[in-house]
Amino acid sequence: MIQGSVPLPHGMNARPAGRADKDFLAKMYRDNRDDLRMIDADKDYIENVIEMQLDAQINGYGNQFPDAVYLILEKNGSRIGRITLDIGKVEMRLVDLDFIKKAKNKGFGSSILLWLMKAAAQTKRPLLVPARRDDPLMLKFLHKYGFLEDETMSDDVYARMSWFPTADEMVGIADIKPRSAVIGAV
């Protein structure tokens, strides 16, 4: 379990989410669901669907990832995002990563992914990341750093991507940098 605040790249830090963050998290989720707002339907209906999706996400993560760690991302004392991690005995899994709109497209996401890759390498685990197929920048980044798609776990919406650290990355004598994918077990 992560306690206190963890320093991250770009002057960010992560801390465990608490009850006082509930409204922030719900607002960020609602604000970032422009995809649902594009549906040709009554505004109240769409907002109800967003609320149901939020409830489903909260309950689904809890059931699917009972040992997940929920973190709030902050910069300069302000909450800018959230990250949900499932740190298993065999693998580290990014369950979810999201930012408020003002913090998007500033390089924060890629720096978080690099931080997770370093943590996975240090703990000698592969890193699993879900990538939306309609997010070409995320997919490009993951391919650039050697992630492979696990087609048995992927679907039409998400490509389930896996990254395996090299032996040199695990012992800290090689930096995490762009490379071809490495296949194998850790």
Rank of each mutant, 00 (worst) to 15 (best):
M1N: 14
I2M: 07
G4L: 07
S5V: 02
N13I: 14
N13A: 14
A14M: 11
R15E: 10
R15G: 07
P16E: 09
R19Y: 02
A20M: 05
D21V: 01
K22W: 10
K22P: 04
K22A: 11
F24M: 04
A26V: 02
K27N: 12
K27I: 12
M28V: 13
Y29W: 15
R30H: 14
D31C: 08
D31Q: 14
D31W: 13
D31F: 06
R33H: 07
R33Q: 03
M38D: 10
I39Y: 13
I39K: 11
I39V: 13
D40K: 03
A41K: 02
A41N: 00
A41V: 00
D42I: 08
D42W: 06
Y45F: 04
E47H: 13
N48E: 10
I50P: 04
M52N: 09
L54R: 13
D55V: 07
A56Q: 15
N59S: 15
G60E: 06
G60T: 09
Y61E: 11
G62L: 06
N63W: 09
N63V: 14
N63I: 09
P66K: 06
D67Y: 00
V69K: 14
V69F: 07
V69M: 14
V69S: 15
V69H: 14
E74W: 08
E74Q: 06
E74F: 12
E74C: 10
G77S: 06
G77N: 02
G81A: 04
G81F: 01
I87P: 10
V90S: 07
M92K: 08
R93T: 04
L94V: 10
V95Q: 13
L97I: 02
L97P: 00
D98L: 04
F99M: 01
K102I: 12
N105F: 15
K106P: 05
K106G: 09
K106A: 13
K106E: 08
K106R: 06
G107H: 06
F108P: 08
F108R: 11
G109M: 13
S111L: 08
S111Q: 15
W115K: 12
W115N: 15
K118W: 15
A119E: 15
A121R: 15
A121W: 09
Q122K: 15
Q122D: 13
T123A: 15
T123G: 14
P126I: 01
L128W: 15
L128F: 13
P130I: 04
R133A: 02
D134W: 14
D135E: 04
D135G: 00
P136V: 10
M138R: 07
M138E: 08
K140P: 09
L142M: 04
H143Q: 07
H143P: 04
G146Q: 01
E149T: 12
D150Q: 12
E151G: 12
T152Q: 05
D156T: 07
D156F: 07
Y158W: 01
A159M: 04
W163A: 06
W163H: 03
F164N: 05
A167N: 07
A167T: 03
E169Q: 09
V171M: 10
G172C: 00
I173M: 01
A174V: 02
A174D: 00
A174W: 02
A174C: 01
D175L: 12
R179N: 03
S180A: 05
V182D: 02
I183A: 07
I183W: 00
I183S: 08
G184K: 01
V186R: 01
V186T: 07
